[in-house]
Amino acid sequence: MKFRSLLIVLLTAGVVWYSTRSSQNELNRLVVYCAHDATYAQPVLDKFTEQTGIAIDVRFDEESNKSLGLTNLLIAEKDEPRCDVFWNNQTLGTIRLQTQDVLQPYISSNSKRIPKTFRDPEGYWTGFAARLRVYIVNTDLIEPTESCVSNRLVETSLSKVAIAKPIFGTTLSHYSVLAAELGMDGLKKWHHDLHDRGIREVRGNSMSKDLVVSAVCDVGFTDTDDAFSAIDQGAPVAMVPIRTPSGATICMPNSVAIIRNCQHPKLAQQFVDFVLSAEVEIQLANSGAKQIPLGPVSEDNLPAEIFKLKQWANEGAKLQAASGLNEEVLNWLRAEMMGQ
């Protein structure tokens, strides 16, 4: 009995010791919170480690913890952050962190290659490698042109059109962009109109894509990376850009930012420089997500599909105005969801 108790105590002590060896205390180890899909982000992180010898501990944003999200986690950890760099897969959440005083400004030498629209003038965050909001269209059911999709969306029934719940991710950003353009009342009217006509609200962009791939729906609201994953698997689908009433597309760059009072500021700067390089933008353009480079890159290194996307991205709506409305939109959606 004594031996067993001793064994349990020793085992527990061993585990506690092992697990509390915090990466924060290691000099050559960086902690990155990454909201970009792990499948596409991990090779970039590995390349950084390969080139610099700096090891990275990464925490990815998971579907399973959407209720918390990395942005909220960073706000909660604000007083004593464990994260050094935040790689967000969009911009609005990062701007929210800036307003909450979570970020540390840093103007990377590589940030100059990114157009001014996609970076903060004081260097709190910088955008890179973007994706677009698109309609994914089942080509067996509908012609993948902007006019056909527009006609489909004005029909009386939208029971074969899917959209993700707007309380998460890029659909929330989409709503915020519309709120900036239409005003809150205009957004509410648009939302209720879609629901009155029976649009199918599903849990995420990937499910919206899956419904179109399986021909349950003929059109779905999603992002370019989800659409490309279906196209690469040989599904009979194509994408058409989503446009706001003014005709602008919705282009959402990744963004990178250093956390205020982080443990490894020098390593963090090295990482930001690396991520904003042309090399990483090319790597992400060639990944399964096929993200659109925002800075100048050699076109020889880009896949053919990117050229069309670059053109659409140039017509993107300004996101700064939308960022101010993000919270208001979410509060309204919460009230709707909770039946208030």
């Binding site: 697990s19 990466s23 899909d37 501990d57 990815f60 399973s64 464990r82 990937s206 994953s229």
Partner: peptide
């Protein structure tokens, strides 16, 4: 849920990875 919210950065629980693989199909 508990695993995805409270895991340390140095440990990614298997169930969270499975969720991710599922998400990407």
């Amino acid at each position: 849920t508990i695993s995805s919210i409270l895991h340390p950065v140095s440990l990614q629980p298997m169930v969270c990875r499975l969720y991710r693989e599922m998400h990407f199909g």
